[in-house]
Amino acid sequence: MLMNFDKLGAWRWILSGICALMALFLLLPILFIVALSFGNSRWLIFPPPGWTLKWYGELFADPRWLQAAFTSAKIAVIVMVLSVAIGLMASLALVRGRFRGREVLRGFFLTPMVLPVVIIAVALYAAFLRLGLNGTLVGFVIAHLIVALPFSIITISGALETFDPSIEDAAILCGASPWEARFRVTLPAISHGLFSAAIFSFLISWDEVVLAIFMASPTLQTLPVKVWTTLRQDLTPVIAAASTLLVLLTVVLMIAAALIRKGKSR
């Protein structure tokens, strides 16, 4: 009765109502930022007295925003490639390896996801002070790789677990070399896992704030760091414009991820 929507009676409307309110609660602030970014009120009055593209103009006129976005993209792409490559190797070891302590190793690989990122940030900052890596591209990449890798490993090993290794054996029996079998049979079979891992890793790096605040220098900063430092000064609508572009990118990547999932289920 309680698990059948049609037989809930009046409760059905209460549940639907709560669900709709929650969805609005999650959705409206995002639409609100998009609306603000086109509003002409510097004091963020809502609804805005008129509409304008001025904040986007300011955003694109300031080379620091563009530079930060470029740095973010560069770091996120490097992190994405490394995270998928290292994650794939680690997943092969975790799913197919035969060695003692495999479960312990799996748990260990996931710890950066469990630990508060602020602890990792402060610890890495201290280590990088000694190594001279703060404020460098390498520093950013390492920091983001540490937090992206667990997601990559989860996604790729999930895909590997559903792939029957005897198909790879079949390819070898049919004359493929082991590496050929791996590259031409296994990799295509788990490609949806690799793509999801790539999208996750990219987004994690692209959106990451806490580590980036510590790694940043006045000359090298990512987009979230630029948003963060601007936010601490004032709530200018330029941030709404930047946020809107970020939301747009998220939507595009989410659709890409959904298409990959759909392709896999076919």
Partner: peptide, 19 residues
């Protein structure tokens, strides 16, 4: 909607609430 909100930049969401 849940996924969109989850994957929207954290600073963008916090900014919305600050305003």
């Amino acid at each position: 909607i849940i996924l969109l909100s989850m994957w929207t930049n954290l600073l963008a969401r916090t900014y919305a609430w600050m305003v």
